[in-house]
């Protein structure tokens, strides 16, 4: 059975939730849906109904391009031995919350 058939025309969507105005949208999980409107409604029902939410994003999972485990060396290792690239030498201004 093909992938398309087994989901009845429904595809996975990734869900991002913004807990308060100005905060970043954070990935919380995924839902199945046939299209964007139903994906939003499913996301609202599955992830948006407990706790405060001011905004929801959904995007087709197929639109997300991801690294593979094989990429981890060339992509991420070089940062390890260059501590001066880390922002830890700066003082975060008092009251800065979403940094």
């Amino acid at each position: 059975m093909s992938e398309q058939k087994s989901t009845g025309g429904m595809v996975p969507w990734e869900v991002f939730v913004q807990p308060r105005t100005g905060a970043p949208h954070e990935h919380v999980g995924n839902v199945h849906a046939s299209d964007a409107e139903m994906a939003l409604q499913n996301a609202r029902d599955v992830y948006g109904r407990r706790g405060k939410v001011v905004s929801l994003w959904v995007t087709p999972a197929s639109a997300i391009h991801a690294t593979t485990p094989d990429d981890s060396g060339p992509f991420f290792d070089p940062a390890d031995d260059k501590p001066y690239r880390h922002p830890s030498f700066y003082k975060v201004p008092h009251g800065g919350k979403n940094v």
């Binding site: 839902v31 199945h32 849906a33 499913n42 029902d45 599955v46």
Partner: peptide
């Protein structure tokens, strides 16, 4: 009919 709608109907 599927998990998400099950939750929606229960809501």
């Amino acid at each position: 009919p599927y998990l998400e709608e099950d939750i929606a109907l229960t809501n």
